[in-house]
């Protein structure tokens, strides 16, 4: 790990000022992503601004929905009674992620900004368009068995966000509050926060330099209360998803009034599927409907040699998640 100077920021203004003076500095929250990358020499910030004292805390009911402070820890949010009751899928996504130790450390803001697990990104000996723009993408012909099949480009096929929380946040229309270096706040839906790789895979989110995530707000809805997160992995715990699905249904008299669907593990970003939602809405809550929705969700898939299995796996994951929710 490179040497760096360390500052305990006591206000958002102080933290953002630090990055204004030293643009290659980094914010330190839980550290579970940042220190991991620094140990692999994939990040070498000359200065860390510790933001753990910033008041981006609390889980509270607001007129816009449940507001979760970005500095809250995954473990606390995952077991919070309001989250469990109103957004079961969000709670499950958090508690099925990482390990209890990492969940005690990692912040909500940091989780949203975690980096891809693509082996070529994480090994500085390889070219990587995300890490060194224009250097190439060995994953295209190499080991891509757990990389993305939706929203990928010829420059990058990584699932830029490999985690779970943002999949559930994308499904339930969560909105992020961001604060920039001038102290000005703006609100960005999670579905618009991540950027597809296209020709610029190095640009992963709409965050401006020095801008911070302050909170995530999830609107309250019947389909969010009746929701689930299903995660399929290579081992039964403590692993990233091969495919996952965050789904919510509002079913009345056997007919689906509203539906929310997002997939994890298969998209270049947390993959909200409005195509699947369109199939589900107004249709009977039956397996045939769920199958049709799953087909629609994977319609645009661009699998490669080693991740072809993900098309069927993601479809089956989605169908089973929908069945699970419909049965509740």
């Amino acid at each position: 790990m490179n040497d760096f100077s360390y500052t305990q920021a006591t206000s958002a203004k102080e933290a953002t000022s630090l990055l204004k003076d030293q643009p290659s500095a980094a914010y330190l929250a839980g550290g579970t992503t940042l220190l991991d990358l620094m140990k692999a020499n994939l990040a070498e910030p000359p200065q860390l601004a510790d933001i753990n004292l910033l008041p981006f805390k609390g889980i509270e009911q607001t007129s816009d929905g449940l507001r979760i402070g970005a500095m809250e820890r995954m473990s606390d949010v995952g077991e919070n009674a309001l989250v469990v009751q109103q957004y079961p899928a969000v709670s499950q996504a958090l508690l099925l992620a990482a390990s209890p130790q990492l969940r005690n450390m990692a912040s909500i803001g940091g989780n949203i900004l975690q980096r891809t697990r693509c082996g070529y990104f994480r090994d500085a000996a390889f070219p990587c368009n995300k890490r060194v723009p224009g250097s190439g993408c060995p994953a295209l012909e190499g080991d891509h068995h757990n990389l993305a099949i939706l929203g990928v480009s010829e420059r990058c096929i990584a699932n830029a966000y490999p985690g779970d929380l943002s999949v559930a946040l994308a499904a339930f229309d969560a909105v992020l509050t961001l604060e920039n270096q001038k102290g000005k706040q703006r609100r960005v839906p999670v579905t618009e926060f991540y950027l597809l790789p296209g020709k610029t895979p190095q640009k992963e989110t709409v965050l401006e330099p020095g801008e911070m995530i302050v909170a995530a707000t999830i609107p309250s809805a019947a389909h969010a209360r009746r929701s689930a997160y299903l995660k399929v992995r290579e081992r039964s715990s403590y692993a990233y998803a091969l495919a996952s699905a965050a789904v919510g249904l509002d079913v009345q008299g056997g007919t689906i009034r509203a539906a929310r669907v997002a997939l994890g593990g298969v998209g270049a970003q947390p993959w909200r599927s409005r195509e699947a939602e369109k199939v589900l809405t107004g249709a009977p809550a039956t397996e045939a409907t769920f199958r049709a929705a799953a087909t629609a969700a994977l319609q645009g898939a661009q699998p490669r040699e080693h991740n072809r299995y993900k098309v069927e796996l993601a479809q089956n994951t989605l169908v089973r998640a929908l069945q699970q929710v419909a049965a509740t």
């Binding site: 330190l28 550290g31 753990n52 473990s75 130790q101 990492l102």
Partner: peptide, 24 residues
């Protein structure tokens, strides 16, 4: 942070000490 061998309790909560800076 992948194996848990470094687990310690900080303020009673289990964490990975390999991903915790001593200064914090």
């Amino acid at each position: 942070g992948q194996c848990g061998a470094c687990t310690v309790l900080v303020d009673g909560k289990r964490v990975n000490s390999c991903l915790t800076l001593a200064i914090t």
